[in-house]
Amino acid sequence: MRRFWLVCLMLVLSAPVLAGVKVLATVPEWGALAREIGGARVDVFIATHALQDPHRIEARPALIARARAARLLIATGADLEVGWLPILLRESGNPHIQPGQPGYLEAARYVVLRDVPQQVDRAMGDVHPDGDPHFHLDPRNIPPVARALAARLMQVDPDGSATYQANLDAFLLRWQAALRRWEAEGARLAGLPVLQVHRAFGYLFHWLGMQSRGELEPKPGIEPTSGHLARIVERQRAAPARLIVRAAYQSDAAARWVAERAGIPLVVLPYTVGGSPDAGDLFGLFDATLARLQGALR
């Protein structure tokens, strides 16, 4: 009998060790990164998936429960999650993941944001005062976030430092190799004029040297209107775009309407990990994105 209780006690004591470091990622790209760096030591929960607009998420009870348990939170920042993350943090009663704590990591702090507005006014639509938060689509922005994440994991779980360092080194090596390959593959996309639904692909276009011919949304976050779409089709005559791209989570109707009127292909890009069956991880995300862009040009 005593042995039974001893076994029970050991199980209880060892449970936290077996459980792994609970990481809450707001969006799939950081969830995928946490799995790369954390490996088997972490237990990652991703608050959203690729078919959800990350700006518009409800602070659902299930998410509060996950925030309560998390030891590390990795968010995009730059106001991407401003509509729901503050509620999760406040309602969770979890001191580890509050802003300013080692368990709160905002990826936007480690990269240079583009399109920082000179002036901010709600009449301009849903503008992000700190700049465009969709920076994960420039693969050169992934390594600094990976390093910051590894450092935070080491802080919250010092016993795993060697593992995190090794995983980080291996990831960065693979990433550098993949980056060279993508840049070689993407070279022929340079200069390509494109249209997009929401300003979600600014970093991707910038990285590949593609030219943005504007967005279907008249203002960020404002639904396309028929008048604005007609003007875009009109503009095709003077300055034609070769493609129109939309993220997997964005609605199809407006993009399809313009694609048909303008006679250009509509390309659905995964936008984040899980946005298409072949975008299973961060490497797959860029492989799939480049393959789709090039496929549409053939």
Partner: peptide, 16 residues
């Protein structure tokens, strides 16, 4: 906040 300018070392104690 440079994009890819630093060596592959991990900051020992990264503060926000």
């Amino acid at each position: 906040a440079p994009a890819a300018a630093s060596a592959a070392a991990v900051p020992a104690a990264t503060l926000p």
